[in-house]
Design a binder for these strands. Structure first.
Lengths: 186, 186
DNA sequence: GTCTATAGGCTGATAGAC
DNA sequence: GTCTATCAGCCTATAGAC
Protein backbone atom coordinates (compact mmCIF):
# COMPACT_ATOMS: atom_id res chain seq x y z
CA UNK A 1 0.00 0.00 0.00
CA UNK A 2 1.69 3.18 -1.16
CA UNK A 3 0.48 6.10 0.93
CA UNK A 4 2.68 8.61 -0.88
CA UNK A 5 1.91 7.85 -4.47
CA UNK A 6 0.81 10.73 -6.61
CA UNK A 7 -2.84 9.82 -6.62
CA UNK A 8 -2.98 9.98 -2.84
CA UNK A 9 -1.06 13.23 -2.81
CA UNK A 10 -3.43 14.73 -5.40
CA UNK A 11 -6.42 13.83 -3.27
CA UNK A 12 -4.86 15.16 -0.11
CA UNK A 13 -3.90 18.50 -1.65
CA UNK A 14 -7.18 18.84 -3.52
CA UNK A 15 -9.09 18.20 -0.30
CA UNK A 16 -7.37 21.05 1.48
CA UNK A 17 -7.80 23.35 -1.48
CA UNK A 18 -11.53 22.65 -1.74
CA UNK A 19 -11.99 23.17 1.98
CA UNK A 20 -10.31 26.57 1.68
CA UNK A 21 -11.48 27.87 -1.70
CA UNK A 22 -13.98 25.48 -3.21
CA UNK A 23 -13.96 23.15 -6.17
CA UNK A 24 -14.42 25.81 -8.84
CA UNK A 25 -11.33 27.68 -7.68
CA UNK A 26 -9.17 24.56 -7.94
CA UNK A 27 -7.50 24.03 -11.31
CA UNK A 28 -5.81 20.89 -12.60
CA UNK A 29 -2.75 22.99 -13.32
CA UNK A 30 -2.39 24.36 -9.82
CA UNK A 31 -3.07 20.96 -8.36
CA UNK A 32 -0.46 19.39 -10.62
CA UNK A 33 2.11 22.03 -9.72
CA UNK A 34 1.71 21.39 -6.02
CA UNK A 35 2.33 17.69 -6.51
CA UNK A 36 5.15 18.28 -8.97
CA UNK A 37 3.59 16.71 -12.05
CA UNK A 38 1.79 18.01 -15.15
CA UNK A 39 -1.91 18.64 -15.51
CA UNK A 40 -2.26 15.92 -18.12
CA UNK A 41 -1.06 13.45 -15.49
CA UNK A 42 -3.81 14.60 -13.19
CA UNK A 43 -6.27 13.73 -15.95
CA UNK A 44 -4.83 10.22 -15.97
CA UNK A 45 -6.00 9.76 -12.37
CA UNK A 46 -9.19 11.80 -12.70
CA UNK A 47 -10.36 12.01 -16.32
CA UNK A 48 -12.87 14.77 -15.58
CA UNK A 49 -13.16 17.21 -12.75
CA UNK A 50 -16.37 15.50 -11.65
CA UNK A 51 -14.31 12.34 -11.07
CA UNK A 52 -12.09 14.27 -8.70
CA UNK A 53 -15.13 15.74 -6.95
CA UNK A 54 -16.67 12.31 -6.47
CA UNK A 55 -13.44 10.89 -5.08
CA UNK A 56 -13.05 13.81 -2.68
CA UNK A 57 -16.57 13.40 -1.31
CA UNK A 58 -16.21 9.63 -0.98
CA UNK A 59 -12.84 9.79 0.73
CA UNK A 60 -13.99 12.54 3.09
CA UNK A 61 -17.05 10.47 3.94
CA UNK A 62 -14.94 7.37 4.54
CA UNK A 63 -12.46 9.20 6.75
CA UNK A 64 -15.29 10.66 8.81
CA UNK A 65 -16.94 7.29 9.31
CA UNK A 66 -13.72 5.63 10.37
CA UNK A 67 -13.63 8.10 13.24
CA UNK A 68 -17.36 7.95 13.91
CA UNK A 69 -17.30 4.16 14.06
CA UNK A 70 -14.50 4.48 16.58
CA UNK A 71 -16.64 6.77 18.70
CA UNK A 72 -19.65 4.50 18.53
CA UNK A 73 -17.60 1.42 19.38
CA UNK A 74 -15.89 2.90 22.41
CA UNK A 75 -19.28 3.92 23.78
CA UNK A 76 -19.37 6.55 26.50
CA UNK A 77 -22.14 8.85 27.57
CA UNK A 78 -24.29 10.78 25.15
CA UNK A 79 -22.46 13.99 25.97
CA UNK A 80 -19.09 12.31 25.49
CA UNK A 81 -20.01 10.88 22.11
CA UNK A 82 -21.61 14.13 21.00
CA UNK A 83 -18.49 16.10 21.90
CA UNK A 84 -16.39 13.57 20.04
CA UNK A 85 -18.60 14.04 16.99
CA UNK A 86 -18.14 17.80 17.17
CA UNK A 87 -14.38 17.33 17.45
CA UNK A 88 -14.34 15.22 14.30
CA UNK A 89 -15.91 18.07 12.38
CA UNK A 90 -14.02 20.85 14.06
CA UNK A 91 -10.80 18.91 13.50
CA UNK A 92 -11.15 19.03 9.73
CA UNK A 93 -11.67 22.79 9.88
CA UNK A 94 -8.32 24.19 10.90
CA UNK A 95 -6.22 26.69 8.94
CA UNK A 96 -9.03 28.51 7.16
CA UNK A 97 -10.70 25.30 6.15
CA UNK A 98 -14.35 24.51 6.55
CA UNK A 99 -16.04 21.14 6.18
CA UNK A 100 -15.58 19.80 2.64
CA UNK A 101 -19.24 18.81 2.52
CA UNK A 102 -20.20 22.37 3.32
CA UNK A 103 -18.07 23.71 0.46
CA UNK A 104 -19.58 21.15 -1.90
CA UNK A 105 -23.03 22.14 -0.66
CA UNK A 106 -22.31 25.78 -1.46
CA UNK A 107 -21.32 24.73 -5.00
CA UNK A 108 -24.28 22.39 -5.28
CA UNK A 109 -25.53 23.90 -8.54
CA UNK A 110 -22.21 23.15 -10.25
CA UNK A 111 -22.16 19.46 -9.28
CA UNK A 112 -23.38 16.90 -11.77
CA UNK A 113 -26.45 14.87 -10.94
CA UNK A 114 -24.66 11.85 -9.49
CA UNK A 115 -22.44 13.98 -7.26
CA UNK A 116 -25.49 15.90 -6.04
CA UNK A 117 -27.05 12.59 -5.02
CA UNK A 118 -23.80 11.40 -3.46
CA UNK A 119 -23.50 14.57 -1.38
CA UNK A 120 -27.09 14.32 -0.21
CA UNK A 121 -26.51 10.71 0.78
CA UNK A 122 -23.48 11.64 2.88
CA UNK A 123 -25.51 14.21 4.78
CA UNK A 124 -28.20 11.59 5.28
CA UNK A 125 -25.61 9.12 6.54
CA UNK A 126 -24.26 11.64 9.04
CA UNK A 127 -27.71 12.58 10.27
CA UNK A 128 -28.53 8.90 10.60
CA UNK A 129 -25.39 8.30 12.65
CA UNK A 130 -26.43 11.07 15.00
CA UNK A 131 -30.06 9.93 15.09
CA UNK A 132 -28.90 6.45 16.02
CA UNK A 133 -26.79 7.88 18.81
CA UNK A 134 -29.72 9.88 20.20
CA UNK A 135 -32.04 6.91 19.82
CA UNK A 136 -29.74 4.51 21.63
CA UNK A 137 -29.44 6.95 24.53
CA UNK A 138 -32.82 8.57 24.53
CA UNK A 139 -32.89 8.52 28.34
CA UNK A 140 -29.99 10.98 28.32
CA UNK A 141 -31.85 13.44 26.11
CA UNK A 142 -33.44 16.41 27.87
CA UNK A 143 -35.64 17.69 25.06
CA UNK A 144 -38.94 17.04 23.37
CA UNK A 145 -37.20 17.02 20.00
CA UNK A 146 -37.04 13.69 18.20
CA UNK A 147 -33.72 11.98 17.54
CA UNK A 148 -33.96 12.90 13.89
CA UNK A 149 -34.68 16.53 14.73
CA UNK A 150 -31.69 16.57 17.05
CA UNK A 151 -29.53 15.10 14.30
CA UNK A 152 -30.61 17.79 11.83
CA UNK A 153 -30.13 20.47 14.42
CA UNK A 154 -26.58 19.35 15.09
CA UNK A 155 -25.53 19.02 11.46
CA UNK A 156 -26.92 22.35 10.31
CA UNK A 157 -25.69 24.14 13.41
CA UNK A 158 -22.16 22.82 13.05
CA UNK A 159 -21.84 23.54 9.34
CA UNK A 160 -23.15 27.07 9.71
CA UNK A 161 -20.96 27.72 12.71
CA UNK A 162 -17.76 26.64 10.96
CA UNK A 163 -18.63 28.74 7.93
CA UNK A 164 -19.28 31.97 9.84
CA UNK A 165 -16.49 31.42 12.33
CA UNK A 166 -13.99 31.43 9.47
CA UNK A 167 -15.26 34.83 8.40
CA UNK A 168 -15.11 36.15 11.96
CA UNK A 169 -11.66 34.72 12.73
CA UNK A 170 -12.85 33.08 15.92
CA UNK A 171 -14.66 29.95 17.11
CA UNK A 172 -17.47 31.60 19.04
CA UNK A 173 -20.28 30.04 17.04
CA UNK A 174 -18.92 26.51 17.23
CA UNK A 175 -18.42 26.95 20.97
CA UNK A 176 -21.93 28.31 21.35
CA UNK A 177 -23.47 25.47 19.34
CA UNK A 178 -21.66 23.02 21.60
CA UNK A 179 -22.88 24.77 24.73
CA UNK A 180 -26.46 25.09 23.53
CA UNK A 181 -26.73 21.53 22.29
CA UNK A 182 -25.19 20.11 25.48
CA UNK A 183 -28.01 21.74 27.41
CA UNK A 184 -30.40 19.43 25.58
CA UNK A 185 -28.57 16.45 27.11
CA UNK A 186 -28.41 15.24 30.69
CA UNK B 1 -35.42 57.25 -9.45
CA UNK B 2 -35.09 54.71 -12.23
CA UNK B 3 -35.73 51.24 -10.85
CA UNK B 4 -35.22 49.54 -14.18
CA UNK B 5 -31.96 51.04 -15.32
CA UNK B 6 -29.28 48.63 -16.32
CA UNK B 7 -27.24 49.05 -13.19
CA UNK B 8 -30.17 47.95 -11.04
CA UNK B 9 -30.91 45.06 -13.33
CA UNK B 10 -27.28 43.95 -13.23
CA UNK B 11 -27.34 43.92 -9.45
CA UNK B 12 -30.63 42.07 -9.28
CA UNK B 13 -29.54 39.36 -11.72
CA UNK B 14 -26.09 39.06 -10.18
CA UNK B 15 -27.61 38.68 -6.74
CA UNK B 16 -29.71 35.71 -7.83
CA UNK B 17 -26.80 34.17 -9.65
CA UNK B 18 -24.49 34.42 -6.65
CA UNK B 19 -27.13 32.97 -4.36
CA UNK B 20 -27.45 29.98 -6.69
CA UNK B 21 -23.91 29.39 -7.91
CA UNK B 22 -21.53 31.75 -6.17
CA UNK B 23 -19.45 34.70 -7.26
CA UNK B 24 -16.73 32.72 -8.99
CA UNK B 25 -19.24 31.05 -11.29
CA UNK B 26 -20.66 34.38 -12.42
CA UNK B 27 -19.00 35.90 -15.47
CA UNK B 28 -19.33 39.44 -16.76
CA UNK B 29 -20.31 38.01 -20.13
CA UNK B 30 -23.16 35.87 -18.84
CA UNK B 31 -24.34 38.71 -16.66
CA UNK B 32 -24.27 41.11 -19.61
CA UNK B 33 -26.16 38.66 -21.81
CA UNK B 34 -28.97 38.34 -19.31
CA UNK B 35 -29.39 42.10 -19.17
CA UNK B 36 -28.99 42.47 -22.91
CA UNK B 37 -25.80 44.54 -22.97
CA UNK B 38 -22.12 43.80 -23.57
CA UNK B 39 -19.58 42.80 -20.95
CA UNK B 40 -17.60 46.00 -21.46
CA UNK B 41 -20.71 47.89 -20.37
CA UNK B 42 -20.81 45.88 -17.18
CA UNK B 43 -17.27 47.06 -16.51
CA UNK B 44 -18.52 50.64 -16.82
CA UNK B 45 -20.77 50.08 -13.81
CA UNK B 46 -18.40 47.78 -11.92
CA UNK B 47 -14.78 48.30 -13.03
CA UNK B 48 -13.57 45.18 -11.26
CA UNK B 49 -15.36 42.10 -10.07
CA UNK B 50 -14.59 43.08 -6.49
CA UNK B 51 -16.65 46.24 -7.04
CA UNK B 52 -19.61 44.08 -8.00
CA UNK B 53 -19.06 41.87 -4.97
CA UNK B 54 -18.96 44.87 -2.64
CA UNK B 55 -22.14 46.31 -4.12
CA UNK B 56 -23.95 42.97 -3.81
CA UNK B 57 -23.03 42.59 -0.15
CA UNK B 58 -23.97 46.20 0.66
CA UNK B 59 -27.29 46.04 -1.15
CA UNK B 60 -28.16 42.70 0.41
CA UNK B 61 -27.31 44.11 3.83
CA UNK B 62 -29.41 47.20 3.21
CA UNK B 63 -32.41 45.22 2.00
CA UNK B 64 -32.20 42.97 5.06
CA UNK B 65 -32.06 45.88 7.45
CA UNK B 66 -35.01 47.63 5.86
CA UNK B 67 -37.04 44.57 6.76
CA UNK B 68 -35.41 44.11 10.15
CA UNK B 69 -36.04 47.72 11.09
CA UNK B 70 -39.67 47.18 10.19
CA UNK B 71 -39.80 44.18 12.49
CA UNK B 72 -38.19 46.05 15.36
CA UNK B 73 -40.47 49.06 14.92
CA UNK B 74 -43.71 47.10 14.87
CA UNK B 75 -42.66 45.38 18.07
CA UNK B 76 -44.48 42.20 19.01
CA UNK B 77 -43.42 39.39 21.29
CA UNK B 78 -39.97 37.85 21.20
CA UNK B 79 -41.31 34.80 19.43
CA UNK B 80 -43.11 36.94 16.87
CA UNK B 81 -40.05 39.01 16.08
CA UNK B 82 -37.83 35.95 15.98
CA UNK B 83 -40.12 34.22 13.51
CA UNK B 84 -40.20 37.37 11.40
CA UNK B 85 -36.39 37.36 11.40
CA UNK B 86 -36.34 33.76 10.22
CA UNK B 87 -38.83 34.60 7.47
CA UNK B 88 -36.59 37.39 6.21
CA UNK B 89 -33.78 34.90 5.75
CA UNK B 90 -35.90 32.06 4.48
CA UNK B 91 -37.58 34.45 2.07
CA UNK B 92 -34.34 35.21 0.25
CA UNK B 93 -33.69 31.49 -0.16
CA UNK B 94 -36.31 30.30 -2.63
CA UNK B 95 -35.65 28.61 -5.99
CA UNK B 96 -32.36 26.95 -5.14
CA UNK B 97 -30.97 30.09 -3.59
CA UNK B 98 -29.25 30.30 -0.27
CA UNK B 99 -28.37 33.43 1.68
CA UNK B 100 -25.97 35.61 -0.30
CA UNK B 101 -23.85 36.16 2.80
CA UNK B 102 -23.50 32.40 3.16
CA UNK B 103 -22.28 32.07 -0.44
CA UNK B 104 -19.83 34.92 0.09
CA UNK B 105 -18.68 33.24 3.29
CA UNK B 106 -18.03 30.02 1.41
CA UNK B 107 -15.88 31.98 -1.07
CA UNK B 108 -14.22 33.94 1.70
CA UNK B 109 -10.68 33.10 0.55
CA UNK B 110 -11.35 34.65 -2.87
CA UNK B 111 -12.61 37.98 -1.50
CA UNK B 112 -10.21 40.89 -1.28
CA UNK B 113 -9.34 42.27 2.13
CA UNK B 114 -11.93 45.04 2.22
CA UNK B 115 -14.75 42.74 1.15
CA UNK B 116 -13.69 40.24 3.79
CA UNK B 117 -14.01 42.96 6.40
CA UNK B 118 -17.32 44.14 4.94
CA UNK B 119 -18.75 40.64 5.09
CA UNK B 120 -17.61 40.15 8.66
CA UNK B 121 -19.21 43.47 9.60
CA UNK B 122 -22.54 42.45 8.10
CA UNK B 123 -22.54 39.25 10.16
CA UNK B 124 -21.69 41.33 13.21
CA UNK B 125 -24.54 43.72 12.43
CA UNK B 126 -27.01 40.86 12.11
CA UNK B 127 -25.84 39.24 15.33
CA UNK B 128 -26.09 42.60 17.05
CA UNK B 129 -29.64 43.10 15.81
CA UNK B 130 -30.56 39.72 17.27
CA UNK B 131 -28.65 40.36 20.48
CA UNK B 132 -30.51 43.63 20.92
CA UNK B 133 -33.80 41.85 20.41
CA UNK B 134 -32.93 39.24 23.03
CA UNK B 135 -31.63 41.91 25.39
CA UNK B 136 -34.73 44.05 25.13
CA UNK B 137 -36.93 41.05 25.90
CA UNK B 138 -34.76 39.07 28.22
CA UNK B 139 -37.76 38.22 30.38
CA UNK B 140 -39.13 36.20 27.45
CA UNK B 141 -35.97 34.12 27.16
CA UNK B 142 -36.08 30.65 28.69
CA UNK B 143 -32.39 29.83 28.60
CA UNK B 144 -29.16 30.47 30.45
CA UNK B 145 -27.51 31.50 27.23
CA UNK B 146 -26.59 35.14 26.90
CA UNK B 147 -28.22 37.35 24.29
CA UNK B 148 -25.04 37.30 22.26
CA UNK B 149 -24.84 33.53 22.42
CA UNK B 150 -28.46 33.30 21.31
CA UNK B 151 -27.69 35.63 18.41
CA UNK B 152 -24.76 33.51 17.27
CA UNK B 153 -26.78 30.35 17.68
CA UNK B 154 -29.54 31.72 15.46
CA UNK B 155 -27.29 33.03 12.71
CA UNK B 156 -25.14 29.93 12.39
CA UNK B 157 -28.13 27.62 12.69
CA UNK B 158 -30.07 29.40 9.97
CA UNK B 159 -27.20 29.65 7.50
CA UNK B 160 -26.29 25.99 7.92
CA UNK B 161 -29.92 24.92 7.66
CA UNK B 162 -30.52 26.78 4.40
CA UNK B 163 -27.32 25.36 2.92
CA UNK B 164 -28.06 21.73 3.72
CA UNK B 165 -31.78 22.00 2.99
CA UNK B 166 -30.94 22.99 -0.59
CA UNK B 167 -28.92 19.80 -0.99
CA UNK B 168 -31.70 17.71 0.55
CA UNK B 169 -34.51 19.32 -1.44
CA UNK B 170 -36.58 19.99 1.66
CA UNK B 171 -36.84 22.48 4.51
CA UNK B 172 -36.53 20.09 7.42
CA UNK B 173 -33.48 21.73 8.94
CA UNK B 174 -34.86 25.24 8.79
CA UNK B 175 -38.09 24.00 10.36
CA UNK B 176 -36.16 22.16 13.05
CA UNK B 177 -34.01 25.19 13.85
CA UNK B 178 -37.18 27.23 14.24
CA UNK B 179 -38.76 24.64 16.51
CA UNK B 180 -35.67 24.19 18.64
CA UNK B 181 -34.95 27.88 19.02
CA UNK B 182 -38.56 28.68 19.88
CA UNK B 183 -38.25 26.30 22.81
CA UNK B 184 -35.68 28.68 24.27
CA UNK B 185 -38.35 31.40 24.36
CA UNK B 186 -41.44 31.74 26.49
C1' DG C 1 2.18 7.03 -15.26
C1' DT C 2 4.12 10.88 -16.91
C1' DC C 3 5.42 13.78 -20.46
C1' DT C 4 5.00 17.56 -24.51
C1' DA C 5 2.05 19.92 -27.19
C1' DT C 6 -2.09 21.67 -28.33
C1' DA C 7 -6.96 22.50 -29.15
C1' DG C 8 -10.93 25.30 -28.17
C1' DG C 9 -13.26 27.99 -25.11
C1' DC C 10 -13.97 31.10 -21.33
C1' DT C 11 -12.22 34.88 -18.27
C1' DG C 12 -11.40 39.75 -16.46
C1' DA C 13 -10.07 43.77 -18.20
C1' DT C 14 -8.87 47.75 -21.48
C1' DA C 15 -8.73 51.13 -25.62
C1' DG C 16 -11.15 53.99 -28.23
C1' DA C 17 -15.36 55.21 -31.21
C1' DC C 18 -19.97 56.98 -30.83
C1' DG D 1 -23.58 54.46 -21.26
C1' DT D 2 -22.93 51.38 -24.65
C1' DC D 3 -20.56 49.62 -28.36
C1' DT D 4 -16.67 46.85 -31.22
C1' DA D 5 -12.49 44.83 -30.97
C1' DT D 6 -8.97 42.89 -28.70
C1' DC D 7 -5.54 41.11 -25.33
C1' DA D 8 -3.23 38.08 -22.32
C1' DG D 9 -4.17 34.58 -19.35
C1' DC D 10 -6.46 30.74 -17.58
C1' DC D 11 -9.43 26.67 -18.00
C1' DT D 12 -10.74 21.58 -19.05
C1' DA D 13 -9.62 18.10 -21.85
C1' DT D 14 -7.24 15.21 -25.47
C1' DA D 15 -3.61 12.99 -28.68
C1' DG D 16 0.28 10.64 -28.90
C1' DA D 17 5.31 9.76 -27.52
C1' DC D 18 8.02 7.46 -24.05
Amino acid sequence: MKMNDNRSRLIEIAEGSVQRSGLKALSFRTLADEVGIKSSSVHYHFPEKSDLARTLIEQYRDKLFVELNGIATSGGSLRTQFLAFVDVFGGTAQDNRVCLLCMMASEFAALNASNQVLLANVFTNLENWLANLFDSRREELATQLSSQQMARLVMSGLEGALLIDRVMHDSERLDTQKTALLQLMK
